[in-house]
Amino acid sequence: MKSKIRPYLMIAPAMIILGVFVIYPIIYMNYLSFFSWNMMGSMKFVGFDNFKTLISNKDFHQVLGNTFKFVFWTVGLSVILGLCAALYLKANTKINAFLQGAIFVPHIVSLVSISFIWMWLMDSQYGLLNYWLGLIGIDPIRWLEDPNVAMTSIIIISVWKSIGYNTLILVAAMQGVPEYLYQAASLDKSPKVTTFFKITLPMISPSLFFLVLMNLIAAFKIFEPVYIITNGGPLNSTNTLVNMIYEEGFVFYKIGYASSIGVVLMLILSVCTVLYFHMLSRRVHYR
């Protein structure tokens, strides 16, 4: 009898914490999205009104567009550049280890520091970037004040931060490819490009899949750089879903409305996750 309840006792602390601080909040958020509430007064059931407001809100369309633009470019660039860097640095030498370390450091530094460092580098008057551009005769760019440029700047910062991690994982994956495959390829005098597409890429594709999913989830939850550097501006051009949830919830106290944006983000993340597992199972199936 005692041994029958033992496993339940062992998982209980973990299940309680996850239940109370992850599962319950996500259910509560869905529930709240059907109410109008300002945190103080009484809650009023409004059905799908929050979602209707959301759909007709032009700012929300822009925020959704901004978020997708950010995710597409950040994930695309950081995975592709990470792949290039990994190909360049995969040989096991001292210089490569140093370079790998150098491009990895931003990944373990606080986003607060990263945000401030880049805010300073991108300062339109006194920033280092514009000074260097000036040296080669390019007019100063208003990196963070121009609504047409600001989102690109945020993307640059995020890519800079995440390349190192992607490189690290892909170098490890490439070093795990058995040497005899490459030897066979070189015996067949196969060109380097063919070797990459026929051997390296298929062999590292599980890691690549995993990386894309991790990068996707990380990109959709983008908040800190936006909140610290631009606070969504100028003209809403860098506002993203999480920043909008924060604003509606903690600045305007529209809890129900903020929750309905959360529901939208939840649905997007679910689609990503389901797609990932679907592709994973298909790969395993046909191999």
Partner: peptide
């Protein structure tokens, strides 16, 4: 129930704090 509970645990891995901070704050 070990499979169901473990599956549930895995699902929580995909839920970032940036999604649930409002209800957590209220709680």
């Amino acid at each position: 129930g070990s499979k169901v509970l473990f599956g549930l645990t895995l699902i929580t891995m995909m839920i970032p704090s940036q999604l649930i901070f409002l209800p957590v704050y209220l709680l």
